[in-house]
Design a protein around this nucleic acid. Structure first.
Lengths: 173, 173
DNA sequence: CACGGATGATTCACGTGTCAATCAACTGGT
DNA sequence: ACCAGTTGATTGACACGTGAATCATCCGTG
């Protein structure tokens, strides 16, 4: 065996697990997003923006707060809002308090689209993802995600400034 | 109450599991890809193409076979190869047997880049993904992926034509 | 109040993905 | 040999993501 001390490499089983995991959950995600798009003509990005906006007081948020809330880069949000604005889902207007900023607001059209999308979207998550598992497996999934977060130290760096007194049910996709 | 029979909706715990799963493994993937890019200036798409090519007989494949092998849309592969060609990783030349087709070949540069990338990439998968779990959890992950594939009927529609007698270790990312 | 540095937001260049359209070259049936 | 229909591959239009650059406004300090 010319094996000169193998380094920190995965076994082929571990590699297969990784690949299967990625491939499988990519398909799950694609199915859920495709259903959202069929049902409501919304992308998951649209959904996330509309969710945050509809939860906001007066259906309006400062653009940078929105970006922070959904954890997007500002330029990403900027571009996405541009597209959504063209479709009439949101509107942007200059901000009174701070002349640099802008204020994003939900249009009636956007609110309607979001309202119509939520139940089918949640159903899709249930049918495509949740229903694939036993309760035990769901608990295992929770635990594996938690294990990853511990492994990568993703839990400590949570405390955002002193903002966000009580985050009201932040949905994701 | 006004509750008119809730439909097939996930509980908030189930929804939280879904969101945590997506977010967490997005980060895992991003870290692995970011490391691949730092180490080797390759994207996961590049890696997948180079892997398939380096496994191919004579480091050359018909473009459409490549697309089928890695399960990409043909236009996606076309665009990706264009970019890779600009960077000198692959080359395309007209195909003798079929004047419509083209033949993709690995350049020395591409082979070198791929060779240099594999060990660090596999290490990253081990360190970032595999090492987060106990062996038991890894087995659970295999089983959850399998459960999804059964749930979505992803295993039956496998048989591709009569081609591909024995697929030789198709790596993914 | 003036100035320099932080901050809000957009823009640009580019990589990446999808789908429809295009176009040439192959194929089979007559 | 010819035409129709399929197939190999590219292209174009668009959605989406990242990072750097830009630009105006704000703010703390002298």
């Amino acid at each position: 065996m010319g094996a000169a001390g193998r380094r920190n490499l995965p076994t082929s089983e571990e590699l297969a697990t990784w690949r299967a995991h990625v491939e499988t959950f990519d398909i799950v995600r694609a199915r859920i997003e495709s259903r959202l798009h069929q049902d409501s003509k919304l992308s998951s990005g649209d959904y996330r923006v509309l969710l945050a906006l509809s939860e906001a007081d007066g259906s309006t948020v400062r653009s940078s707060e929105l970006a922070a809330h959904i954890e997007w880069e500002r330029s990403r949000l900027s571009g996405h809002l541009g597209r959504m604005e063209k479709r009439g889902l949101v509107r942007r207007e200059p901000c009174a308090e701070d002349a640099r900023g802008s204020r994003v607001l939900l249009t009636a059209e956007g609110a309607r689209a979001f309202r119509a999308s939520t139940v089918p979207h949640l159903q899709a998550i249930k049918e495509i993802f949740v229903d694939a598992f036993t309760p035990r497996q769901l608990a295992d999934l929770d635990e594996t995600a938690a294990a990853v977060r511990r492994h990568l130290d993703l839990d400590s760096p949570r405390p955002r400034s002193s903002d966000v007194p009580n985050s009201p049910t932040g949905e994701t996709s």
